[in-house]
Amino acid sequence: MRLVLFPYFREIFETIKKDKPLIHHITNYVTVNDCANTVLALGGSPVMADDLAEVEEMVSLASALVMNVGTLNQRTIEAFVLAGKKANALGTPVVLDPVGVGATALRTQTVQRILEEVQLSVLRGNMSEIKSIYGQGGKTRGVDSIDDSLMGGREIALELAKRLNCVVVITGATDIVSDGEQVFYIENGHEMLSRVTGTGCMTTSLIGLCVGTKKNPFHAAIMGTAVMGLAGEKAYEALPHKEEVGTFRVKLMDAIGSFSITLMEESVKIHEA
């Protein structure tokens, strides 16, 4: 099955390099620079715009919209809905990262409002966040997952994708991706990814870039997720001293910038669940 996916991955990657899709982010200020650089490193063009006066105009220029609720305020909440509705009207893919949903009432209510008013192409979160949305009450501490169990993950991804009519990505030690019909596991990555702030946000941006090619969002979500896992492995291999978190962060961006389809064909670990 993995071999069947490679032509789709190649087409997505070649489209990124050729078209440099513009990815409109309404994202959090903790990781905004890393998200922008991640999109640039793989070959896309990021723009960060969240003011109500311009989000509709900006999303009209974009190939995809990435929404990340990591640092909420009342202005950005309205920007999410305004931009999301405009993207839907234009047929522009929308990717949501529900950071910390379930941790506070504001986050939970905001994500619920977005899900009610905006049609997503992809929802990406950790296990706690996805369980919270699904209705199982995932355990969240701040914006971090404290529930990384795969128990029930396949069924949750499958059923939530059907319910929301979008691709669902659950990232963790093993990533789970479903379009409501199929479920794939991705087993690339390294523990060091959990020691750098924002790798989940960066994964969402990579998914947004791949979805911005307007190819199949299921294939695009798998590819964007796998790119981060593979980059994490390559970054760790390149460390001169294995506990250097700061150096790992730099090597991670280098690995995304030097990513190739050949690397993916040789090293990706994807299988149907």
Score class of each variant (00 low, 15 high):
Val99Glu: 06
Gly100Cys: 09
Val101Thr: 15
Gly102Leu: 10
Ala103Asp: 04
Thr104His: 09
Ala105Ser: 12
Leu106Ala: 10
Thr108Lys: 13
Gln109Gly: 01
Thr110Gln: 02
Val111His: 12
Val111Gly: 10
Gln112Cys: 07
Arg113Phe: 03
Arg113Cys: 01
Leu115Asp: 05
Leu115Ile: 14
Glu116Lys: 15
Glu116Pro: 00
Glu117Phe: 05
Glu117Met: 12
Glu117His: 01
Val118Leu: 02
Val118Ile: 15
Leu120Gln: 00
Ser121Trp: 06
Val122Met: 04
Leu123Phe: 12
Leu123Pro: 03
Leu123Cys: 10
Arg124Gly: 09
Asn126Asp: 06
Glu129His: 13
Ile130Val: 15
Ile130Gly: 04
Lys131Met: 11
Ser132Asn: 15
Ile133Met: 13
Tyr134Ala: 14
Gly135Pro: 08
Gly135Gln: 06
Gly135Lys: 11
Gly135Ala: 03
Gln136Arg: 14
Gly137Met: 12
Gly137Thr: 13
Gly137Val: 13
Gly137Asn: 12
Gly138Asn: 04
Gly138Ala: 07
Lys139His: 06
Lys139Trp: 03
Thr140Asn: 04
Arg141His: 11
Gly142Pro: 00
Val143Met: 03
Val143Ser: 06
Val143Gln: 09
Val143Leu: 08
Ile146His: 02
Asp147Arg: 05
Asp148Ser: 01
Ser149Tyr: 01
Leu150Glu: 11
Met151Thr: 11
Met151Tyr: 10
Gly152Arg: 09
Gly153Asn: 05
Gly153Cys: 08
Glu155Ala: 13
Glu155Asp: 14
Ile156Asp: 03
Ile156Ala: 03
Glu159Ile: 09
Glu159Lys: 15
Ala161Asp: 09
Lys162Thr: 08
Lys162Trp: 11
Lys162Val: 08
Arg163Asp: 10
Arg163Gln: 15
Arg163Ala: 14
Arg163Val: 12
Leu164Val: 13
Leu164Asn: 02
Val168Met: 00
Ile170Thr: 10
Thr171Gly: 14
Gly172Gln: 02
Gly172Asn: 03
Gly172Leu: 02
Gly172Trp: 00
Ala173Cys: 05
Ala173Met: 08
Thr174Glu: 01
Ile176Gln: 00
Val177Cys: 08
Ser178Arg: 09
Ser178Thr: 05
Asp179Leu: 03
Gly180Glu: 00
Glu181Gly: 02
Gln182Cys: 06
Gln182Asn: 14
Val183Tyr: 07
Val183Lys: 05
Val183Gln: 04
Ile186Leu: 14
Ile186Gln: 00
Glu187Cys: 01
Asn188Phe: 00
Gly189Arg: 02
Gly189Asp: 01
Gly189Leu: 01
Glu191Gly: 00
Glu191Tyr: 04
Met192Cys: 02
Ser194Gly: 04
Ser194Phe: 04
Val196Cys: 06
Val196Thr: 11
Thr197Ser: 08
Gly198Leu: 02
Thr199Gln: 01
Gly200Glu: 02
Gly200Arg: 06
Cys201Thr: 04
Cys201His: 04
Cys201Asn: 07
Met202Glu: 02
Met202Thr: 13
Thr204Leu: 05
Thr204Gln: 09
Thr204Gly: 15
Ser205Pro: 05
Ile207Asn: 05
Ile207Val: 15
Gly208Asp: 04
Cys210Leu: 12
Val211Cys: 12
Gly212Ala: 12
Gly212Thr: 13
Gly212Pro: 05
Thr213Gly: 06
Thr213Gln: 08
Thr213Trp: 11
Lys214Gly: 07
Asn216Cys: 14
Pro217Tyr: 14
Phe218Lys: 12
Ala221Lys: 11
Met223Ser: 05
Gly224Leu: 07
Gly224Arg: 01
Gly224Gln: 03
Gly224Ala: 04
Thr225Arg: 05
Gly229Val: 06
